[in-house]
Design a protein around this nucleic acid. Structure first.
Lengths: 355, 355
DNA sequence: CTGAAAGCGCTAACAG
DNA sequence: CTGTTAGCGCTTTCAG
């Protein structure tokens, strides 16, 4: 006993006690009086194994709270049930992720992946270095990738697709696209929001958002289209080129307000932007919705609880997460995955009600 | 050539081309005319290797965009540079994660871990099944864990510590605690917020939050203490037992308002709650801060941009993330890690200004 | 249905 | 400084 204990110490096998030597497959095999092959098959639900044997091994494993060593499993089987989820950030401005939108998406992805027995490796990467995510795959770190937000990296994403990296992205469909996307119908979202404002009689609608980002671009296109449909001339001055981040947005809004350009409504590319704008405008004495109607985008949880409650465009995030995971599974099994668009709905609340 | 191609197809070695056979260490070794050991050492920065050789191998590896196979590395070396970050959710209510607070924390953790060359495995787990996270460690999936939020699971966390699982938690220090925590000074935060309201002349301060959660409990204790210090009697009726989630919070606030209990201020356990409360109260015709002063907690990005801008308690999240990672590193190397408290600051904005 | 044997790709003694 | 050798813990033919 004493000898054994000393041996343990010398070899760093245990922190304090022989018990903490991690139990492994061969231990189970020995205790069950079978070979490791049998244990392996039993634990993996192979149909080759006698039901009674499987049960016995499973029980044993559970009672010892045995967990299979994933490195060994992955190495040997060549599989990898870890998916990398990448939320690119715009360089310098790492804060965007604070947007509840991303968090919600992340949550849904985690749920979906867990349901399919995958793990989620979370990784931030500069949008401009998005090619770096190839390494995550090539090191065997992950078996596939989900990129949340395509920003302006269409070409680089195409490159990754050419390199056979299995991934899908949350974003819009673009021309000559070699990868699979799932995204909201940004054009329609922009159209719906703008149409709503126009139908309320608003004519001078400020658009707020970063037109370099693909998603926003498409929302803007919908905004323009709605103007055209209503035969309302659009004034390019009604634009606040704000990124997705709140801190600078505030500055941008204030600058816009200083210009004293007449406007009667505002459509922001995210709820966070919209709420920030409402704050700034209220502070400047503008009343919402009487003086300015405001529409946001995303329908984050809080949108319903601001004052006034925010009219916004909702995308079904749960379905989106599900679609992303499903499509990635197709890509992983070398099947073709069609890009998908999830529907967008206009949620009308008091920030646009007349009166 | 043709034969080769066929072989590839039969064996699933490649999707379309021989080139996509993943390059590995032995290939580099062959091309460099050295052994794999040398390549391994060179790539791992072993001091045993001739600088010139190292350079040559590094260049070769980069030019082939070689990525080391992590499963093999982990299996062989027994190390694991992946850290599991767990954000427990209260059962049924998976939405809490939407709170920007968690996202900010996650972002900082990702940054810190990346800096130390660790990967981040993101995992949601029901707070009530927090013992499940042992499996992440025992399967070799992660080398250590960071739990964000201790909720009411103190005893289970103690159990995990007894099982020698290496982890640290974001949360408060409790008695007979076997694990390391990093947390805000919740007591002080509660005290500061309440003191501020009292010093403004407010006397009937509603506390809003879920007293079952450890963090909130301590904030409440600070709230009580401040009352005592100011010799102000505290009315237990001034309490809205709201969880961290926004949707139900709204209901709870409305119910509270219906009771017509007199109050002149509100201290919420999170900014999200505070903002929701401001929305509800404004809708009921209460003016902020004239009729009701409001203080939140966390100082999320948007707090500054609501109307009125929200007075709140800020915790230095970057330092917090750093401390969590640093302490985990200590735990991993079997050193003792003291629990830590990061400072809290009162940020005064208009939601509490008199006038 | 089960076992024996051969590695997955890498690292780390040990021996030059 | 570099190569040889022996596995890490598991899966998977191939034989019974």
């Amino acid at each position: 006993m004493d000898v054994n204990r000393r041996f343990m110490q010398r070899t760093h096998m245990a922190k304090s006690d022989a018990e903490s030597k991690k139990i492994q497959m061969v231990d189970i095999a020995r205790m069950a009086g079978v070979s490791t092959s049998t244990v392996s098959r039993a634990l993996n639900g192979s149909p080759l194994i006698n039901e009674e044997t499987r049960q016995r091994i499973a029980d044993l494993a559970r009672s010892l709270s045995y967990s299979i060593n994933l490195s060994a499993k992955n190495l040997r089987s060549g599989e990898n049930r870890t998916i990398g989820v990448v939320i690119p950030y715009q360089d310098e401005i790492r804060q965007d992720v604070t947007d509840p939108f991303f968090m919600t998406m992340l949550g849904h992805l985690a749920d979906q992946l867990t349901k399919q027995n995958f793990d989620l490796l979370f990784s931030r990467i500069a949008a401009s270095h998005i090619e770096d995510l190839a390494q995550l795959y090539e090191s065997g770190r992950v078996g596939g990738l989900i990129v949340v937000g395509q920003w302006d990296q269409h070409e680089k994403l195409n490159d990754l697709a050419r390199r056979q990296i299995p991934f899908v992205v949350w974003g819009g469909q673009l021309s000559r696209q070699l990868y699979c996307t799932v995204g909201g119908d940004n054009f329609n979202g922009g159209y719906l929001a703008t149409q709503h404002l126009l139908s309320l009689g608003r004519r001078r609608i400020v658009f707020m958002g970063d037109k370099d980002a693909t998603e926003t671009q498409q929302r803007y296109a919908g905004y323009l289209q709605a103007h055209q449909a209503y035969k309302v001339a659009h004034d390019p001055a009604l634009y606040i080129p704000s990124p997705f981040t709140v801190a600078e947005a505030r500055v941008d809004i204030n600058e816009f307000l200083k210009k004293k350009i007449a406007f009667d409504s505002l459509f922001a590319a995210s709820d966070l932007l919209a709420i920030t704008a409402m704050g700034a405008m209220t502070q400047h004495g503008l009343r919402i919705p009487q003086d300015v109607s405001v529409v946001g985008y995303d329908d984050i949880g809080m949108a319903e609880h601001t004052y006034p409650p925010l009219t916004t465009i909702r995308q079904p995030m749960d379905l989106a997460g599900q679609a992303l995971v499903q499509n990635l599974m197709r890509v992983l099994s070398d099947k073709h995955a069609d890009s998908e668009v999830v529907k967008t709905d206009l949620i009308i609340r008091n920030s646009t009600c007349p009166v």
